[in-house]
Nucleic acid binder design. Structure first.
Lengths: 209, 209
DNA sequence: GTCTATAGAATGATAGAC
DNA sequence: GTCTATCATTCTATAGAC
């Protein structure tokens, strides 16, 4: 037998089912509105069983948050320090749009967490996000100094990218309502991604091919 | 005495205090997380008194929502059918930024309402917003046909404007955290407004003066 | 590991005196 | 109109049998 205690089969299965259900419920109802009994019910297990795997609602919520954080980190890495702003920003915008498409629930939970004053992720805002943002502001300022892009405010540019890309996740219900009540097709989503990329890049003075 | 029954003095005062407190609490904790006792406490009255003025938590919430709706209508009117897209869009973007500055709490409540599937405002999305959006898409398409702006997807442009301007309200906590822990000064906010306007207008091919 | 039953706390709303 | 006391419900969390 291994030194690493292998997780038992039902544990793996149940934990995964709980996390999927929890992400749904937290995104739909917020932390306060979510009930452990609803999460358990959607996961297909009795409520007491949920508390066996995750002792408190808050512990479950923090597990969800840390998963979302790792997705955030993945996107952050796509904004690398490269000489070509069209490359770097284009890749970053497309990565963020892809994440909004693949993980809209996580994006909504994240947005609500910030709207509520970031009770769980304040530390992240003050350390990881702050450092990451400062480093990217420096890169953008260098592009400006090298006359590769217009002399825009770097922070405002970053906020615009975050806002626009996350909007497709956070407001997907509204976008669906304005699309005849159904979600955007893959084709339309791709088109939106290209439009967003084009407007932002052209907007900061990058010549589009 | 007037035919219109004048509202008594304490009623006016208390209703106003309740609405201000309710907007705060709903934006911070969401509908489910908000408690009538906390709202009453912030309004400086006993909980039973709150229920005297607003029989249920939901009735109070709907009053708040209808106030936010009237602000939305006000912003919508600034996007008028004019020949100059720089004028029309610039005015609209600036009006939206101003609203995010003046009414961040309302914006957050609105965002959460949509994230939760718009339980109270689904009708608004399907009628007023849908009609308004369709009419503005037509105007944008006309500008494109007249070669006044690039041939971008009108919907994506509108979403970008909504996302970016509302981000300054909905994510003000994060923006503050990235600004040394304090809110943006009037000066910085003005600068952000100009940056946002410039990037979007230039991004759709409008020559900036 | 699973599940029934329930304890203990919080909350929305109201009764009824003033 | 105001306010204390309280009911009824709901929710988190756990005990304890299996």
């Amino acid at each position: 037998m291994n030194v690493m205690q292998k997780k038992s089969k039902p544990r793996v299965k149940n934990e995964e089912a709980i996390l999927i259900a929890a992400e749904e419920v937290f995104s739909e109802l917020g932390f306060a509105g979510a009930t452990t009994s609803l999460i358990a019910s959607r996961a297909g297990i009795p409520k007491a069983n949920l508390h066996y795997y995750y002792p408190t609602k808050e512990a479950l919520y923090q597990t969800i948050i840390s998963r979302i954080f790792s997705i955030w980190l993945h996107a952050a890495e796509t904004f690398d320090d490269c000489d070509d702003p069209a490359d770097a920003l284009g890749r970053y915008i497309r990565a963020k749009m892809e994440i909004s498409r693949m993980h809209p629930l996580g994006s909504k939970i994240w947005a609500q967490e910030i709207m509520h004053g970031a009770p769980q992720i304040q530390g992240f805002l003050e350390t990881t996000l702050n450092d990451w943002t400062a480093s990217r502001v420096k890169i953008i300022e260098r592009w400006i100094a090298e006359r590769k892009i217009d002399a825009i405010d770097p922070q405002s540019l970053l906020y615009m990218i975050w806002a626009t890309t996350q909007h497709y996740a956070d407001f997907e219900h509204q976008i669906g309502a304005l699309n005849g009540g159904k979600a955007l097709s893959d084709e339309k989503y791709k088109h939106a991604t290209e439009t967003v990329t084009q407007i932002i890049l052209k907007g900061i003075g990058i010549k589009m091919v």
